[in-house]
Write a protein that binds this DNA or RNA. Structure first.
Lengths: 139, 139
DNA sequence: CTGGATCCTATAAGATACTG
DNA sequence: CAGTATCTTATAGGATCCAG
């Protein structure tokens, strides 16, 4: 059993870092690594088994997938159903609470469509400007 | 100059992890640690200097604040203005592009008001259920 | 004042092997 | 099948000192 390691810790819900930003707790809750891909997969692919999720998320490792699924289950965003068969079968679904996030994701997707290209442009401008500065400083 | 360390790297915009989740690039872009508190502070407090931001975000270190400001500047979400005075003065503002995120943040804030308590409840239920299991297993 | 440079630690994540 | 255990590595972040 790992305990000091892999803490999962500190209940983002009550984290004092919110002092400067009221949405910070939700951000840490919902947008921590892998949570959106998992919820998205469960929403669009429907009820899924552990190995199905691993296929849907090709770059995640079993260990991390387990961690994230446990966290999402604890937060009430997904539902885990264990079938005591041989071989055992476990199914995951998004919960009603988890589904309330879908409109939020849609808003983000809309922002992405509308503005992500501008971010890419800004990055190129920034990088070329810095490159020119460097070249000029060099002589 | 740190190079292998502190990479900042890999352009989330073009990250292949999006395969399972189209909003993943934006999530990594906008909701990485400290970016929402910084943007929120600049939006609500207005044009701010480095030290003001440090006061508004009491737990951030200068090093990390610098990193995040650079990243946000590169992504075009904030604007950095350097005044070559003595002592030097630097001001940060949210850009027009950055301001397009405000409605997104509002949607998240609404979700938080409506559903965050349910997350807290789910956590308590999960934890007590696990505690009971453990007690029962112990005898 | 606004950070950069350097060193160090904590935490997240990967690889691999194994089990009920 | 659905994970767990263990070890190792990578990365983010903190502490401190220093500089234009």
């Amino acid at each position: 059993m790992e305990r000091a390691d892999e803490s999962e810790g500190k209940d983002a819900v009550t984290d004092p870092a919110r002092e400067a930003c009221p949405i910070n707790p939700v951000v840490e809750l919902i947008f921590s690594r892998w949570t959106t891909p998992i919820l998205w997969a469960l929403e669009h692919h429907g009820r899924s088994r552990f190995n199905e999720l691993q296929r849907l998320l090709p770059t995640i490792t079993p260990k991390v997938l387990t961690q994230r699924l446990r966290q999402l289950e604890r937060d009430g965003l997904i539902i885990r159903t264990y079938h005591a068969e041989i071989p055992p079968r476990v199914e995951y679904t998004i919960s009603d609470l988890g589904r309330t996030l879908v409109p939020v994701f849609d808003v983000i997707a809309d922002w992405s469509d509308a503005h992500l290209p501008q971010v890419a442009t800004a990055r190129q401008a920034y990088d070329t400007a810095r490159a020119e500065e460097a070249a000029w400083a060099e002589g």
